[in-house]
Design a protein around this nucleic acid. Structure first.
Length: 546
RNA sequence: GGGCUCGUGGCUCAGUGGAUAGAGCAUUCGGCUACGAACCGAAAGGUCGCAGGUUCGAAUCCUGCCGAGCCCA
């Protein structure tokens, strides 16, 4: 961060002094290979057209004008890149920043306090969460942490679909099992939830509402519905808690309908000319916004559609003052995205909604696929998976890949403590450092204080490599926030851990000469801090021993 | 039929218009009588699905086609 900012300011100064405009497309970033330099800039190439000069000529002029104590060398590469090398002292200063900021290292005010809502999981409370929900949960939770770290004001929400047909089916399913348990031989419903958990809930209803056996079916079903929903929702909350996932608000669909929000939103859309009556139904004019047909909001029989509730819900979100709303959905809802975006645009909030689609999770055990279907009752619950492999491993696997590609989740592989399972690789690096720090303390050798001159001892290529990576952490967090991609952080952690392991093999920390030893302990301490901060963004623990 | 997403070493994946396309796994070879070998090093492995286009420059952007998955009809 410091490096990038420093260089940008420097270059801007030079370019301005030459009377050239600063090109929007200028990029300053670390080159793929550090032999090219510490940072590379393409300003010369971007300026070539504007200044009507060859890139090389511009580059030469810039190089000539640069005079900065931190820049130790500038080179011009063939295509016109400017490659900058910074002094070792500059890189060593990174340690001061890490020490000073501690857990806050990596934080920034990039978001400028922008209010962001992240809505995720939001599974219908008709059964326990399964592994696919776990992926959405890990992603949403991590995203919230990353956005918060980069200066956004974040709120996490779970939308409880407690009003629809699915909940009625839940009630009927419970009632069916309850009647069976009473040997009443009820007819099998056409469509119902078959999972074993339904029977447990039925027993619970009976225990708490013994009078239910004498009630008319409709009333009994309603009791089952409410009881079942409460039990299942409590289970979902517990599962998410055990998975380390946070939701600030549990928003009920029923409350939306009850409070008349749906009608308010309808009126609003009508006033904006985005909705109309036809054939006894009420329609959303989505064709105006690129949808392939207009969509019904209220059917001629008076029922409102799911889409109508969803529009009202999003209207409500924006009325609560969020600048950005992030929805995390299963990829099977992707057909719904353009419609929802159109609705948001119709509400005058174009660009205010980001939908992240999470692809399916393919659950395997030793390469064999495990079938999953909530209706059929065959699935591995999130709880089972977390109990088996641990929350850390599960979260890390989910977060180490882009959300828009399918994910194979093999229980056997995830349980293995090997490189098939990258979470241990990163955690091991952290634990290893703490082991060295403990050992150092036993030997009465402590990390050097920052203000000492010992840091001059950090001179090797490996020292510099670690320092450069530590310095990049704040950039990484911002990149992850901008692209809403936690996997950027996990990739970074892999790289840092790998560099640490390599360092550890090459350079012996404790038995080297005393001043060097203390300088290296300080370096180790800072690596541990950054590993910890990065893992925290993923919601994964950083153990000091394993 | 229309739409969305994805095609990168044998496998799983990074790669936000930039330099010789990178990791891990698997394979082969090597490294613990020093801080944790849950580790490290080396070798081998690629026409970035195919064909055009945009430009100083394309795995990346655009168009068409092929293939996979999903949604809607």
């Amino acid at each position: 961060m410091r490096a990038k900012q420093h260089l940008e300011n420097l270059l801007k100064g030079v370019v301005e002094a030459k009377g050239w405009p600063w090109p929007d497309k200028a990029v300053i970033e670390p080159p793929k290979d550090h032999k090219f330099g510490d940072l590379a800039a393409n300003v010369a190439m971007m300026l070539a057209k504007e200044a009507k000069m060859a890139p090389r000529q511009i580059a030469e002029q810039i190089v000539e004008a640069i005079d900065d104590p931190v820049v130790s060398k500038v080179e011009i590469a063939g295509p016109g890149f400017l490659n900058f090398f910074f002094t070792p002292d500059f890189w060593r200063e990174t340690l001061a920043e890490v020490l000073e900021r501690g857990d806050a290292y990596g934080a920034s005010d990039m978001g400028k306090g922008k209010r962001v809502q992240v809505e995720y999981v939001s599974a219908n409370p008709t059964g326990p969460l399964h592994i696919g929900h776990g992926r959405g949960a890990a992603l949403g939770d991590s995203l919230a942490r990353i956005l918060e770290k980069s200066g956004h004001d974040v709120q996490c929400e779970y939308y409880v679909n407690d009003a629809g047909r699915q909940m009625l089916i839940l009630g009927q399913s419970i009632f069916y099992r309850l009647s069976q348990a009473l040997d009443r031989n009820p007819p099998e419903p056409e469509d119902y939830y078959r999972g074993d958990y339904i029977q447990g809930i039925a027993a619970g209803v009976l225990a708490q509402h013994p009078e239910i056996t004498d009630l008319p079916d409709a009333e009994a079903i309603e009791i089952c519905r409410q009881y079942g929903m409460a039990v299942i929702l409590a289970g979902i909350k517990q599962d998410l808690k055990d998975f380390g996932v946070r939701h600030d608000i549990w928003f009920s669909e029923t409350s939306l309908v009850k409070d008349g929000k749906v009608d308010e939103t309808f009126a609003d859309l009508r006033a904006r000319g985005m909705a109309f009556d036809q054939d006894g139904a009420f329609w959303f004019r989505s064709t105006d916004l690129g949808d392939d047909k207009d969509r019904v909001l209220r059917k001629s029989n008076g029922d409102t559609t799911y889409f109508a509730s969803d529009i009202a819900y999003h209207d409500n979100k924006f009325k609560r003052g969020f600048d950005l709303v992030v929805d995390i959905w299963g990829a099977d809802h992707h057909g719904y995205v353009p419609r929802m975006q159109a609705a948001v645009e119709a509400l005058g909030k174009k660009g205010g909604l980001e939908v992240i689609l999470v692809q399916l999770v393919n659950l395997l055990r030793g390469g064999e696929q495990i079938a999953m279907s909530t209706r059929a009752g065959e699935f591995e619950t999130l709880k089972d998976v977390v109990d088996e492999v641990g929350a850390d491993a599960a979260r890390y696997i989910f977060l180490s890949r882009k959300s828009d590609s399918k994910l194979d989740f093999d229980l056997e592989l995830v349980k293995q403590k090997s490189m098939d399972n990258p979470v241990y690789y990163v955690q091991y690096a952290h634990a290893r450092i703490h082991s060295v720090l403990r050992k150092g303390a036993d030997m009465d050798v402590l990390p050097a204080p920052m203000e000492s001159c010992f840091l001059d001892e950090l001179t090797t290529d490996e020292d510099m490599e670690i320092l450069r990576i530590l310095e990049r952490f704040p950039d990484t967090v911002q990149a992850a926030a901008e692209t809403l991609s936690p996997h950027v952080v996990s990739n970074y952690l892999q790289e840092l851990a790998s560099t640490l392991h390599k360092y550890y093999t090459i350079h012996h920390v404790l038995s080297s000469e005393k001043e060097r030893c203390r300088a290296r302990l300080l370096l180790m301490l800072c690596v541990a801090q950054v590993l910890k901060n990065g893992l925290a963004l993923l919601g994964v623990s950083a153990p000091e021993s394993m």
